[in-house]
Design a binder for these strands. Sequence first.
DNA 1: TTTATCTTTCATTTCTTATTGAACAATTCG
DNA 2: CGAATTGTTCAATAAGAAATGAAAGATAAA
Lengths: 176, 176
Amino acid sequence: MKRNSVANQPAGATPLSPVEVEVIHLFVQLSRALGQPPSVAEIYGLLFVSPHPLPQDEFYDRLNLSKGSASQGLRYLLDLGAVRTVYVAADRRVHYEAVAELRNLAGRFMRQQLLTNFEDSGARLARIAAEAQKLDGEERKHVVSRVKMLQSWEKNVKRVLPIILTVLGGRNGAAR
Amino acid sequence: MKRNSVANQPAGATPLSPVEVEVIHLFVQLSRALGQPPSVAEIYGLLFVSPHPLPQDEFYDRLNLSKGSASQGLRYLLDLGAVRTVYVAADRRVHYEAVAELRNLAGRFMRQQLLTNFEDSGARLARIAAEAQKLDGEERKHVVSRVKMLQSWEKNVKRVLPIILTVLGGRNGAAR
DNA sequence: TTTATCTTTCATTTCTTATTGAACAATTCG
DNA sequence: CGAATTGTTCAATAAGAAATGAAAGATAAA
């Protein structure tokens, strides 16, 4: 069966309500901006509106994605800390609920994202600086100044990140 | 000819120096984190280290990408404001140079990125809020609180963005 | 005007990433 | 112990994104 956006559930599954559809859309949109796969966004979106913890089959029945996607997507969200498991009495299935505190979410996401792609940027910058010394005259002057610029960028970004997290967390999103 | 990373220039083109290679790597890495195509990162990286403005053929000769990619990539960077054109006397070709102020770069990039994916999120939130009123009892209560949470998130993000830009710009990257 | 140079466009191809689904655990129930 | 239910893994496939290259525009020089 093909993934035709959010549509045609298998017989017996409760179709998505209009609110659910809208909220899921919102998260899918967000996922594009953040470079995350849509299936993950769908899963998180559904969990986010749901008043109860949900078991895995809810996801592949109602969002009609494959077992595999549901399993992988949930594991990814678990690792990210965007979702937690909940024990439900008299039910064998593992249930999930959304972790919705913006500070945690944003923080973990950034860490994951930046660490994955960035670990060695400092080392690389040092290597570049060293290489630059081998150049001569005008060119060296220019390259050295560019490298300094990059180092300054790095420092700035490192300075800004904690601030972002603080501000995001300060008055945070707990609706009351 | 296939794109085999940064390698085999056509005969006659100056091969990339070690410094250039490293700097380009750095930008390609960054581009992954930001979800930008590698070819664009290569172009910007080369321009960033270059002490002179460069014409288009430099890009497809030395980075060996196609004319098409060079043209499109440069246009993209121009639109973003990450690159500007430079007039060079007695040369018919348009030359390009990098715009390297972090504040401008980051600002424009965020604006472009967020506007593209986000324009209507406010409207969508309003629609969701309206839909939520149609629900009843417990469920409505929960959905309404979630919607409030989303609205609060949106507000927080809008509040944080200008701060980020200010801090990035404050002591900015002009090497001296 | 004709020719040469430089640039853009866009249908096609290639490459990357996300998703599927069938096979294989693992667990609980009868 | 099976049998049924739940969950994971991973090779194969599909969907999507980026890059190519050939053709067509522009512009300038001869």
